[in-house]
Amino acid sequence: MSKSILVDTTKCIGCMSCVAACKETNGLPQNEETELSADSFNVVQSRAGVFVRRFCLHCQDPTCASVCPVGAFMRTAAGPVVYDADRCIGCRYCMMACPFSIPRYEWKLALPRVRKCTMCAPRQAQGLPPACVEACPVQASIFGERDELLAVAENRLRENHTGYVQHIYGEHEAGGTSVLFLSAVPFEALGFPANVPQDPLPTFTYRVLSKIPTVVSAGAVLLGGIWWITSRRAEVAEAEKNDLDKSGGE
């Protein structure tokens, strides 16, 4: 069970209502930007003649949360991936690692934070939908349970074979995301990375991290063993030399 947003780029009219609503809810300056930034968590870009929203996809197994050394990112049970600025040390590994290059940094500040969409976790906690979804006049974005939205998306693909690329972006990307996209043009043309693995990215690291206990114990035994053998050998050599010295002296 997790809450999701389905964005149907074929319906978007580029009115920017979601952008304004996002800025208002998050107390951000109302300037119109087309790139995500420390004070734009949601933008509408025009690409290949299509309007496409860009914001955090709220991965089901979020890369950002797995890489953060201090656990500043967390996936909440309800779905949103949220950030705790009080833990963050500012290493920016989350920005490096996010397969969709979403997190932004307050580069201009002496005490910066990482910034990104929270899927309106505070509003959701009050039973409200995310501000962007509520603001959309044409329901290009809709909000609901992930399974239900996947069913809706599949329906749309089935009913309109030619109107849609037969792919739900986010269903499997990076192990599945909570934000899902539909499109009439190839997703790559909309700026979505096409080479994101289907496995959750944290598994790539886990494969190695899980070997650490073996490496450490095998390494300790090996090094200890080598030390024991070589020091024995040194002792024996020493003793032999002493013997030789003695016999030579007699």
């Binding site: 797995s66 890489v67 953060c68 050394p69 201090v70 656990g71 833990r87 963050c88 040390i89 500012g90 290493c91 920016r92 590994y93 940094y105 005490l111 910066p112 934070r113 944290p202 690291t205 886990y206 190695v208 991290l209």
Partner: peptide
Amino acid sequence: LGRPYRIWHPLVMWNPRSVMF
């Protein structure tokens, strides 16, 4: 580090899934 004075945070705030940790 953006917040160098928190360099000690990994000592008390753990995330063993992180290589950086």
